[in-house]
Every structure is written in structure tokens, then in C-alpha cells.
Amino acid sequence: MKDRGNPFVAEGMRVYLSERGILRTYLFIAGALGLAVLAMWPRSTIEAALRGGGAADTFTVVAACFLLFLLYLGARYGAEDYSADSTVQLREYVTLTPVPLFSVIGGRLMFAVLHTFLLLLIGAPFLAAAMAVGGAGFPQALAALAVIGAASLAARMCGLLVLTLVGGRRPLRDLLLIPVLAASLVVTFFLAPRTNPFHAIAFLLKDADGPSACLASAGVDLGAALALAACSLGVLSMVRGRAHRRGGSGE
């Protein structure tokens, strides 16, 4: 995971595996998912479940909670909310160093992918426990992880874009990031349900083609993540250009 070739991956390794605030979020994921699976665990007999006409929604609810947590945390990670003091600020990198912008965004994206894998692993035991009672097989579990991971990555890139646009101005950044993310989820749920990760999770076990729908949604989210990363790249190049112009005029 440690990539000495890209300073942003190395920095991510250092920060995201040592910052106490960030490490606490890992515990939060495990604890909250544990509570969710406990709350949704079926307590009836098989006969009662059969008479009820369907399996418990344990897996669906746990996966939806996992998605919600990783969307929120992904957005906050992307906006460097948990690492503001320990990381070199993005704008300083861009304006004060000659590091190629592609390396900045590529490094952040690469670390985001690796870190999302770690977060998925941390929550995976609860999904595994909920599989049998919730009526999910391996295809459904893997599809759920794929859609959660891709959506989290997209949220992370969304956070990065907001960071590049707004910088460290906290109240403004928070006011912009979470509402935009929530609004996009609400809008896509009703207007473009096939692209919405919550819709994909909700119908994963209800439809025969649920896993493929999940993978399609994950594909859309990955595309969105790349598009958002590209936008961040564009914004940063504008920031650097403006800084160079200021530096040039200053000289």
C-alpha cells in the first residue's frame, strides 16, 4: 500500500493510520454496524418467518447503514475534515510546490481507493454475519460491497472537489458538502434510481437481477468519482494558474 513514488499515498498512510480522530471513526463503523445488525437480527422461529412471507431485512439494513456511514465519512475524509492539522494543505502544495497536479489528484485518488478497501474490510464481518439470516449469497454480498465502496469513493472525491473550491473555510465547506451530497442522493433516488446506491441496496435481494443492478450503480459511482477527480484537477490548475499569475505580476 505504501507508495514511495507518490507523496500523497505515503502521507495518507501516515495520517489515516495514526490520527486518533480517524482511527476512532474505524471503531465507530464497527460499533454502529454491530448495533445495526443486533437491532435487525431475527428473533423468531423459521416457521414464523416462513408464515411472514419473507426473510428478515437484516442484510439490507446493515448494508444500507454501512453505505450511509461510508458516504458520510468518505465525504469528510475527502474534505480533510479529520486531518486538517496533520496534512500539508492542498492549496499550499499546489501553489508553493512544482508537484504535477496529476500527481496530486492521482495520489489522493489512489490512496482513497486503498483506504476505502480498508474501510470495507472493517465493516465486512457484520455483512458476513447477516448474509445467511438476511437471505444474501456471495454474489449479493460482493455486489453490496462494490456499490458501497464505489459510492464512498465518489463521496470522497466530492469532498475533495469542495475542498479545492472552498479551501479550509469550515462552516462554508460543511454547509456545502453534506447538503449537496444528500440532495444528489435524494434526487437520483427518484429521478435516476438505477444510479442511486441506496436504491441498489434496497432492491439487491428483492430482484433477481439485484447484483447486476448493484454493479451498474457501482460503475456509475466510479465514473462520478473519476469525473469529480477531473473537476478537482481543473479547479487546482486554475488555482495554480492564478497563483502563478499573481507571482508573475508581483515580480
Binding site: M1, K2, M13, R14, L17, S18, Y26, L118, L121, I122, A124, P125, F126, L127, A128, A129, A130, M131, A132, V133
Partner: peptide, 28 residues
């Protein structure tokens, strides 16, 4: 950091396998 990462991966992967085996094979 590297040690922590390695241990986190080992623990979570082991727990995933254990969770699947316990609730999809042994108990149900």
C-alpha cells in the same frame, strides 16, 4: 502505520471468514 494496517486487515478478514462460517455454516 504499516503494522497497524497489516493487523487491521488480518483481524477484519479473519472476522469476516469467522462470521460467515459461524452464521452460515455452524449455527444456520
Amino acid at each position: 502505520s504499516r503494522t497497524r494496517l497489516l493487523l487491521l486487515v488480518v483481524v477484519s478478514v479473519s472476522a469476516t471468514i469467522a462470521g460467515w462460517a459461524l452464521f452460515s455454516r455452524v449455527l444456520f
